[in-house]
Simulated scan of single mutants.
Amino acid sequence: MKMEKSTQQLNLYPPETRFIIKMKNFSTGDVKILNDINLSEYEKSLKYLKYLNANGYNVFLSACKAGGVYILLDDIKKPAIDKLFTDGFEPFYFLQTSPDNFQAIIKLSDSPLDKDIQTFASKQLAETYNADPNSADIGHFFRLAGFTNRKQKYSKNGLFPFVKLYAGTGNTCTKGESYVERILTGIDNGFIELLPKKHITTPPAKLGERKTLVSGCGAYIEKVYKSGNKDGDLSALDFKAARYALRKGFKPDDVINAIKLFSPKLESRKSGHIDDYISRTVKNALYNAI
């Protein structure tokens, strides 16, 4: 017996995952919820969900207690999906929700994270890949495969497009853990402030994984400068050195000290505001160290 597409989608999550199913009729505004159900309970509700979908309701999913951090990139295009794979943010899976639009579900981490950190990561990736910023929060629902998208603008001769499921890696994305680590480093070093007057410390498990300040950071930065064009845009070269070093996992304070030591003509270029300039450069590099 062929498995339902929506069941295939839910089967991608760990067995202990609980789900919230939301059904919404955009014409009437009516909303119905199936709360805190498992896969077996979902399968028993399929006929009911299909009935609602046929009568104008859109069907959405949220996964709870899924064993890790999953984020949604909403309303992105196929080239952005391809770039996610190229950049190391391979989708856990992705959905085609209408002829030109996709949703990507990305598993960033195997370990739980503070909700504010998850939201920050979602918003940063949404900006990078031109996703809908209004959907970049961990509580946002996404589509269920096998049901139709009942938005009227997609209706053709009374028919609506089915939401299609596409396989991703089914695992944590390649750069997920290092991306989270850069965010945690930025918080600890004051480069990233999530909420006013709120301090979020790095989980103890993460602290032990940090690369400490070693001569390797200075040597790496010096190598970037030696290979760069010293007659070109030196500010761009500073940014390149910072981004490359952060990608390697060096701490921002170490990168700041190394740039201060090796950046060409720094005293004459940035006289009077060297510390502020380097701090801003490293902060910008943290946001772009993908």
Rank of each mutant, 00 (worst) to 15 (best):
M1E: 11
M1N: 13
K2Y: 13
K2W: 14
K5D: 15
P14A: 10
P15A: 04
K22R: 14
N25L: 06
F26I: 07
V31I: 11
D36P: 08
S62A: 12
A63M: 04
K65T: 10
G67R: 09
G68T: 00
Y70H: 12
L72Y: 00
D74M: 02
D75R: 08
K78Q: 13
Q96Y: 10
P99Q: 07
K107E: 00
K107S: 03
L113Q: 07
L113S: 03
K115W: 14
I117Y: 01
S122W: 02
Q124C: 06
I138W: 11
R143E: 09
R143D: 07
T148V: 13
K151G: 00
K153N: 10
Y154Q: 07
G158I: 11
G158F: 06
F162N: 09
F162P: 09
K164I: 08
G168R: 04
T169S: 14
N171W: 10
C173R: 01
C173G: 06
E177S: 04
I183Y: 07
D188C: 06
F191I: 04
H199W: 12
T201N: 15
P204H: 06
K206N: 11
E209H: 14
R210C: 02
T212Q: 15
L213K: 15
L213T: 14
V214G: 15
A219W: 13
E222Y: 14
Y225E: 05
D231A: 13
G232L: 06
S235F: 14
A236H: 08
A236R: 06
A242S: 01
A245K: 00
A245Q: 01
K248E: 15
G249N: 02
P252E: 07
A258N: 08
L261T: 15
K265P: 01
E267L: 14
I278V: 12
A285P: 05
